[in-house]
């Protein structure tokens, strides 16, 4: 009897710590989303289309709106984005894009200064598509096209 009481408190702690950890990992396991402006021209985007756009295999969508593809500066979010979407690591992506650019096949996405600059560019350009950390999911001025995890 008393032994189970003695273990009750630690069990509670384990539960609490687990919940906290779940929140914490939820925050750091940077899920990413692809977004456009709420009133933007792009209404839907499939994962295939996103992959083709970010690999320079296509430059437009069916709607024919001039697209502005956005990138984040080199770093964790960008590396993770390409890993999630294309399965390629940072040096593979750089080599791949150098091939696409210097063969005249495609232009790389425009690099935003940071996530909030990317958000600004999304709002100012009706044809802009960009990826952002998941905490932008509830931003009322954005339309979320895809979740990546």
């Amino acid at each position: 009897m008393w032994s189970s009481d003695r273990h009750g408190a630690p069990r509670l702690w384990i539960v609490l710590v687990s919940i906290l950890l779940a929140f914490a990992t939820g925050e750091t396991r940077a899920e990413l989303l692809i977004a456009t402006a709420r009133d933007g021209a792009v209404e839907a985007l499939s994962r295939d289309e996103a992959e083709q756009l970010y690999l320079g295999r296509r430059a437009t969508l069916a709607a024919r709106t001039p697209l502005l593809l956005l990138d984040l500066p080199p770093g964790e979010s960008r590396d993770q984005f390409y890993r999630l979407l294309t399965g390629k690591n940072p040096s593979q992506i750089r080599a791949y894009w150098s091939r696409m650019v210097f063969t005249g096949r495609a232009l790389p996405p425009k690099e935003a200064a940071d996530a909030s600059d990317a958000r600004r560019l999304l709002l100012e350009n009706p044809g802009a598509i960009g990826y952002l950390p998941s905490h932008y999911a509830n931003d009322p001025s954005l339309r979320i096209l895809l979740h990546l995890e």
């Binding site: 080599a95 150098s98 091939r99 210097f102 063969t103 005249g104 096949r105």
Partner: peptide, 30 residues
């Protein structure tokens, strides 16, 4: 590009004889 799937090009291009012809001078890509 008349459609997303098509790109028509004219002028000075690369002879795409090999798998890596396009990037023959771009050693960073290899």
């Amino acid at each position: 590009a008349p459609a997303p799937e098509f790109t028509l090009r004219a002028g000075r291009l690369r002879v795409p004889a090999f798998m890596l012809s396009d990037s023959l001078d771009i050693n960073y890509a290899h």
